[in-house]
Design a protein around this nucleic acid. Structure first.
Lengths: 221, 221
DNA sequence: GCAAAAGTGTTATCCCTACACCCATGA
DNA sequence: TCATGGGTGTAGGGATAACACTTTTGC
């Protein structure tokens, strides 16, 4: 038992994880194993420990529930509506995570009943206010494509310009002119040729590129 | 006494309030009346009640400690470093507030010892990690001037284009061409002439403008 | 040789920037 | 009449958008 002189809310982290795969923007969800919302799909997340930072807690929950680790993570928003959890007052600090599709290795989840990737177009009804959280994360992602290099977080170590353009087109849901996209991207000076090329299929091989500063999301324009 | 099965952190809100006055960007601070950091300047804020939303709590604390109410408020970031408060684990949801200089009426503070406006250039050493919070709020404000109509939140009901330009120049710390500023601002289609004019001094009177959608911060660009 | 994706330049348009003079007023 | 800030237009440059053909490969 833990006792306090004043009432304290519970604090959780919830994580919206995106990836781009099979020409779709996808979202990682877990099926809740316990009440409330047992059997419903929800964002991975859970209660924060008193001796860990918020981001540390988010990473721990993410690893425990989905096996995902080492991803790009940024704080999204904090949700604290009084009745958002039927059990008690719960304030959640939501994080947004991006992962390259080649790093997806879903572990048999420990805390959750099941884990799955869902296309944004056909995601199920979510527990709590998680739909609202997902919507905001999606909106933020779309906005950030325009003024930052966040799209690189979806890319593997090496990638072609066409693959990179695909990511933009899938998330923004609009086609781009290939020549202008290349000119724009190369002018940003954020990627460099690796020297390698990718051959797949009966056509000219594509040059491979890598991100110059993989650890930093640059603000562009 | 309040008891919980699992440990709960304390949750507070802190508010960074800006105004523009006397050709300076100013910040509202309170002097702490109790430990820790007694006698130090700090952001207004305090513990959240279990039956109020985060924003409601922020507004309540703001009113109690400074007398300020009815202002524009937006969530900034949530700070949760383990040791940010020497008493116990405290997670704070920081908000940023903007207020027109004509609405500044500082009430004799109830919870705080003193309240004061400080220029960003000469603000005192702050309690806790409040400097970090102020820095982020400032950074965000500068960024938002560019791509939103947030500057209107500093303006009174009616204002001249020169007054509006002053706000931009003071916050961005750079002079702007008057003709280009006017062209840009009027093209945004966010303000309208009220018909009135302001005469002050031995020169041509300035037309007064008001914001078309005062309740919405538009994303521009 | 043919299908399929990669790669590549030029032109037109729009937006942003730079810049100087007249206007209305109070003293 | 003069000092002061308010108000206005245009031309040049840079960035963005539109647009089509050649290259390399596997089959």
């Amino acid at each position: 038992m833990y006792q306090y002189e004043y009432p304290h809310p519970a604090v959780t982290t919830d994580i919206v994880i995106f990836t781009v795969r099979d020409k779709q923007l996808k979202l990682l969800l877990i099926m809740r194993g316990g009440e409330p919302f047992k059997g419903k799909w929800a964002l991975p997340g859970g209660f924060i420990e008193l001796d860990e930072d918020l981001e540390t807690g988010a990473r721990r929950e993410l690893a425990e529930e989905t096996g995902v680790s080492g991803v790009y993570l940024e704080q999204l928003y904090t949700y604290g509506a009084v009745d958002r959890d039927p059990r008690e007052r719960v304030i959640t600090v939501a994080y947004s995570a991006l992962i390259p599709s080649d790093k997806i290795v879903l572990q048999a989840a420990t805390d959750a009943e099941a884990v799955g990737w869902f296309s944004m177009d056909e995601s199920p009804t979510l527990a709590f206010d998680h739909k609202k959280i997902v919507d905001m994360a999606h909106q933020r992602l779309v906005a950030k494509l325009d003024y930052s290099t966040i799209a690189f977080k979806f890319m593997p170590e090496e990638f072609t310009l066409s693959e990179l353009q695909d990511v933009y087109e899938i998330i923004l849901r609009e086609e781009m002119d290939r020549r202008n996209f290349r000119k724009w991207m190369l002018a940003l000076d954020q990627i460099k040729e690796t020297g390698g090329e990718r051959r797949e299929g009966a056509h000219r091989p594509a040059k491979l590129y890598s991100v110059i500063n993989p650890d930093i999301v640059e603000i562009i324009k």
